[in-house]
């Protein structure tokens, strides 16, 4: 129980640090920014208290906002991500049996399962992010396209990180 909390805190700090110090300074081809910190929200245990889920989502986004000086943008998008998360899990993995406190990680959902789970949620996050960034619906097609490309790239990085970590777990 306690070790689970510590693990989550370490994961939070590491992912936020990597996000803020490395990925926020990286803009691939000028316009793709990767958000691997979302992995933290993806990996919260599946049966987490819904109030906590929303609050964690909000404050995780807000933390990144602090460092980006984009007050509220990441918070809004992350809150949306965790809001749709239970529905997405229910939608994709109706048949999957979760043990109590289990994390919806790659070892549980499998590669393709985790891929579609991660991509859907990252896309939801990116879409709201890009819409609020653009602050207008005039170029909505362009915005969706950008969000799509950006979330594909982010999902790729998330898959890599998750694969590295779950491999380690198996090795141990």
């Amino acid at each position: 129980m306690n070790s689970r909390l510590i693990k989550n805190i370490i994961r939070f700090v590491l992912l936020i640090a990597v996000q803020v110090l490395i990925f926020n300074n990286m803009h691939l081809w000028g316009y793709i920014t990767l958000y691997p910190y979302l992995l933290f929200l993806l990996l919260l245990r599946f049966d987490i208290n819904k109030t906590n889920l929303l609050l964690i989502g909000f404050f995780t986004g807000l933390t990144v906002d602090f460092f980006q000086n984009t007050m509220g943008m990441q918070a809004a998008a992350s809150t949306l991500l965790v809001f749709v998360r239970p529905a997405i899990i229910k939608f994709y993995f109706k048949t999957v049996e979760f043990a109590p406190r289990e994390e919806p990680g790659i070892s549980k959902l499998g590669f393709t399962g985790f891929l579609k789970y991660a991509f859907t949620l990252v896309f939801v996050h990116n879409l709201l992010l890009f819409v609020t960034e653009a602050f207008t619906f005039s170029g909505i097609v362009n915005t969706i396209e950008q969000a799509l490309i950006n979330s594909m790239a982010t999902t790729a990085v998330i898959m890599i990180i998750e694969m590295l970590f779950s491999k380690k777990k198996k090795g141990l």
């Binding site: 989502g57 909000f58 986004g61 007050m71 509220g72 943008m73 918070a75 809004a76 809150t79 949306l80």
Partner: peptide
Amino acid sequence: LEVVSMVM
């Protein structure tokens, strides 16, 4: 929470 974010 979304309203708070938008206000921010």
